[in-house]
């Protein structure tokens, strides 16, 4: 059992004011990991993992992390596959060139709608749409990195999703679109019924309409459109929007803790962000943290966890295995 994926939250700072994520309101970076400490972490991850490892640079807005390109460059040099997701606001021509040179393999841009006003509204920032489109235009001049679009399905953009999928499908520079379902905004007080709250209910889609739109996306996906979600995931979005309270992994256990870690800006290493860290990259070698007592304890808790956890529907979706009937010969 070795690490295949590492989500590196390099900063929790963000320059946009998104309606679907409120981290920008109060979440600020704690003591940051120094460049050299990250580089040592990559070295130890390389030594530890025999399989190819994917490092995802995420945020906040990762481009606000000073020295980000040193990190990406080093990770690529070590043979990791590298991905980053950005809101695109800071991606000017200079950044495009530097990102290309860094060796980054895959770059995702958040885009909520092809309608400027709607994207800007959801992202809480005037000019956000224009900037992300400009960034995509700059990238159209280069062949690398691979580029995808990340879209959060919510109550404000249901009508725009098929259009987005169509647009991605005909845009040769774009590799795919990946949909996520809106969750309770990060950085808000936990509340099972958040989507009924006056502050957030505009984010929650009408279930019937969502089903209709998702059926359309399923149809497009079946017609070989460049949609990266599994069909089963799009199906499960339908039931999630119908009843978010009862959505839970039923048969399969949570897949966290097996082959992925998340590292926060303070260096703490997590198997599951809802549980305690298993170590810190500033102090611990990854192989020690990975097989530590703490890690085993967290794995035990994950195995027994029956929380109605929305991560399972988005980033960590995994199709529930059909129970196979073994036929006697």
């Amino acid at each position: 059992m070795r690490i295949k994926q590492c989500d590196l939250v390099v900063t929790e700072n963000c320059c946009l004011r998104c309606k679907m994520c409120h981290i920008w309101k109060h979440k600020r970076d704690d003591e940051q990991v120094l460049l050299d400490e990250y580089l040592r972490f990559f070295d130890s991850l390389r030594d530890f993992s025999r399989e190819p490892v994917q490092i995802q640079f995420v945020g906040g807005e990762p481009l606000l992390k000073k020295g980000l390109l040193d990190l990406i460059g080093h990770a690529c040099g070590k043979g990791f596959s590298t991905t980053m997701t950005t809101n695109g606001f800071l991606v000017d021509r200079n950044a495009v060139e530097m990102l290309k040179e860094s060796g980054l393999q895959t770059l995702g841009f958040s885009l909520e709608s092809m309608k400027k006003e709607k994207h800007d509204f959801l992202r809480g920032t005037n000019g956000a749409y224009e900037r992300v489109m400009k960034a995509l235009e700059y990238f159209s001049e280069y062949h690398s990195p691979d580029i995808f679009i990340a879209t959060i399905i919510n109550g404000q953009n249901l009508d725009d999703l098929a259009e987005l999928a169509e647009w991605v499908n005909v845009n040769r520079r774009l590799d795919f679109i990946y949909f996520q379902a809106v969750m309770q905004p990060f950085g808000t007080k936990e509340n099972e019924e958040w989507f009924k709250d006056e502050e957030f209910k505009f984010l929650w889609p009408d279930a019937d309409k969502a089903s209709e739109v998702l059926d359309k996306l399923i149809h497009l996906k079946s017609s070989s459109y460049k949609i990266n979600n599994q069909l089963a995931q799009l199906e499960s979005f339908k039931s999630y929007f119908r009843d978010p309270g009862t959505f839970i992994k039923k048969r399969t256990k949570c897949n966290l803790g097996k082959d992925a870690v998340t590292v926060l800006p303070d260096g703490n290493i997590f198997l599951c962000l809802a549980m305690e860290p298993i170590g810190n990259i500033k102090a611990d070698r990854i192989e020690d943290a990975w097989s530590s007592e703490k890690a085993e304890r967290v794995r035990g808790k994950i195995a027994n966890c029956r929380n109605n956890c929305k991560l399972m529907i988005n980033c960590f979706f995994e199709e529930e295995k059909k129970e196979c009937q073994v036929l006697d010969a």
Binding site: L35, L64, K66, L69, D70, N94, A95, M98
Partner: peptide, 17 residues
């Protein structure tokens, strides 16, 4: 010093930008 959001920390001054 390295401009804010220069994206580079080490040897930023050697990048052609």
């Amino acid at each position: 010093t390295a401009p804010f959001f220069a994206l580079l920390e080490n040897n930023w001054q050697e990048h052609k930008e």
